[in-house]
């Protein structure tokens, strides 16, 4: 079964490489520094939300509230941004954390189905965000360095020569590395930690055990309720982080953003080969899944740019949905044939 599991993640990686290859072959500027950094900057938010979702789904749960929680945190962070980067960051994280704690409590202690519980918090968080913001986007402060969280990088620290004419390939690599957007660093760091937690801590193993058999885990004496509680707290916290980046990237708290993020996150997780029923999954594959769906979006934009076709954003949703369906069908086929073997 790990072979199957690896193959699901491997399949996503292969698809990612194919689509990048396709883009590089078909479109000018697809492999430009500008495009790469834009893709990374924009998708880092989804990557964070996807990571939280990945842990939730591995326990066999679901968190529908991530989108509105991110919207709420973006509003809170924008309000606090005049006081500086740290207050903005902490405020946004606190909002996410609070939502996560509420979700975790309702699900693990009051035993409400995750779907229902997070549906409720999704509506509630969205309402709070709209109330706080008066249904307007909340401009973030340009006077503090808050925006760096969404738009910044370390390019300023680049040595002179890499920007020179003859910097060559090596110089470009260093340029991209230092030009790496701060949100992408945050996401990378989160994924590194997430992978460590999943693979090398007891909590991570308990997450998979609970998803693989909640009753069995309980009978084995594992802290199932605490494990379930913590994954929702994690998911809320990461959604909060995504919200902070949202506010910083677009220069404003966005109370109506985040619609459909939960579905995008679920899609990334599933495309990465994590079982929706829980018990099996991979953090790295979720990152691949996020990038895959994100780059698919970029490819469609480039295709529109070519002028041959003009696909609206709605068509992109249709295509992504179809793509997801194919992956899920393949997944269940593979699982079934593995079970039959």
């Amino acid at each position: 079964m790990p072979r199957l599991h690896a193959s699901a993640g491997f399949g996503a990686l292969l698809a990612l490489l194919l689509i990048i290859g396709f883009g590089a072959w078909r479109y000018d500027g697809f492999i430009s520094e500008y495009n790469i950094l834009t893709v990374l900057r924009y998708n880092s938010m989804f990557a964070l939300v996807g990571l939280g979702m990945c842990f939730v789904i591995m326990t066999g749960g679901i968190d529908l509230s991530v989108g509105s929680v991110a919207a709420l945190s973006s509003v809170v962070a924008a309000y606090l941004s005049p006081y500086g980067l740290i207050p903005g960051l902490l405020g946004g994280l606190a909002a996410g954390l609070a939502a996560g704690i509420i979700n975790g409590f309702i699900i693990s202690k009051m035993k409400i189905l995750p779907f229902i519980a997070t549906l409720a918090t999704m509506l509630a968080a969205s309402g709070v965000a709209l109330l706080l913001s008066n249904q307007q986007s909340v401009p973030a402060s340009y006077d503090t360095n808050f925006m760096a969280l969404g738009q910044g990088d370390f390019a300023l620290y680049a040595p002179e020569w890499v920007n020179g004419e003859d910097a060559g390939f090596f110089g470009a690599v260093i340029r991209i590395f230092l030009g790496f957007p701060i949100p992408a660093w945050i996401a990378l760091f989160a994924y590194f930690l997430g992978s460590l937690i999943l693979n090398r801590t007891a909590f991570g193993r308990h997450v998979l055990a609970v998803g693989g058999g909640e009753e069995a885990s309980r009978l084995m004496g594992l802290p199932t309720d605490r494990t379930i509680f913590l994954v929702y707290v994690m998911s809320g916290f990461l959604a909060g982080m995504a919200g902070v980046i949202l506010a910083a990237q677009f220069g404003a708290g966005q109370p109506i953003e985040g619609v459909g993020w939960e579905l995008f996150a679920i899609a990334s997780v599933v495309v990465g080969g994590t079982l929706l029923t829980g018990g099996k999954g991979s953090v790295g594959a979720t990152l691949v899944g996020t990038l895959l769906l994100g780059i698919l979006f970029t490819v469609l934009n480039f295709e529109n740019g070519m002028g041959w076709i003009s696909l609206s954003a709605y068509w992109q949703s249709v295509l992504r949905g179809g793509f997801l369906l194919v992956v899920v069908i393949l997944q269940s086929r593979l699982t079934r044939s593995a079970a039959a073997a």
């Binding site: 998979l208 693989g212 069995a216 009978l219 018990g279």
Partner: peptide, 10 residues
Amino acid sequence: NLIPFRSVTE
């Protein structure tokens, strides 16, 4: 009452 997806060691 064990977890089939997880390894024997786990």
